[in-house]
Amino acid sequence: MNEEIPEPGRAPEEPQARRGGAAREGNGLGREEDGAPLTRQRADGGLNLKPSGRVSVPEEATQPDGATVENPVFSCRDVNVFYSGKQALKEVSLDVGRRQVLAMIGPSGCGKSTFLRCLNRMNDTIAGARVTGHIHLDGRDIHDESVDVAQLRARIGMVFQKPNPFPKSIYDNVAYGPRIHGLARSRAHLDDIVCSSLTRAGLWEEVKDRLSSPGTGLSGGQQQRLCIARTIAVQPEVILMDEPCSALDPIATARIEDLIDELRESYAIVIVTHSMQQAARVSQRTAYFHLGELIEVGNTDRVFTNPRHRLTEDYITGRFG
């Protein structure tokens, strides 16, 4: 390779970019259905330049350290995003594993939110935004014409940076999703859904006596948990969180982090965070973005203890960002 040893992480980018579209078309859709050949292929293609690492460390064999995972929920290949022609995301290839938390870190403006918003096609709502590349959810291309984008988004929950309950009652906030999708058979069933969602979000005890008061009257941390309850009421498979704690105080943050840890048992979670401690605490995998590129991704422990790329190292040691 071209440079000094601490930078093998750069290597994945180059061959991958060169393979580009040809590999994509050559492999077609079939490969998404089977995780194993995909993993092998990416490794051959140079995504993991340290196969020795994977052989010698047992737990990394079950949790491959890199952009791909076994049986992913999301499988993204060569994703580019342009805002009015300006490229915000460059050739990102990344899988999201089941029942685990993927943290995305990086300096602000590096495309974390942009990538997150690709996953539920939220970028469709931005005029002038264009997304290219392949994003498969459970093996199905989310950009396929047959995909109903509303149904897709119902399968993928999203929690935003600023808590943003609807200007409705607490009950109606949680019931909103089940109502528009007709998930509840009866009023009692809807009550059930609301109760269990609030319970899972750790908010039930605090609000059970005032379900009809406005959601906007809660504290910031409570509002954010309400938004999480609203999200899980639709029974999504994946939950996307965009800096969910950045507007919260440390205690509220700790509660959300505990909640994320619990939710991981049922959902795949992708969380954008500007706090490296938070990424280290809640995630199993961490992806580092820089100027629209995915620089490095791997098991969280490994990325934080032994970053392979100079940029990652600089960022997590606080030299910039």
Binding site: T125, G157, N164, F166, G177, H181, V234
Partner: peptide
């Protein structure tokens, strides 16, 4: 605010529903 619209979109609301309900 976009966040309000997006949180409805994020729950699987259609454009029609977002317009009328948000």
């Amino acid at each position: 605010p976009d966040v309000l619209k997006e949180s409805a979109y994020g729950l699987g609301a259609t454009t029609w529903e977002v317009i009328w309900q948000v």
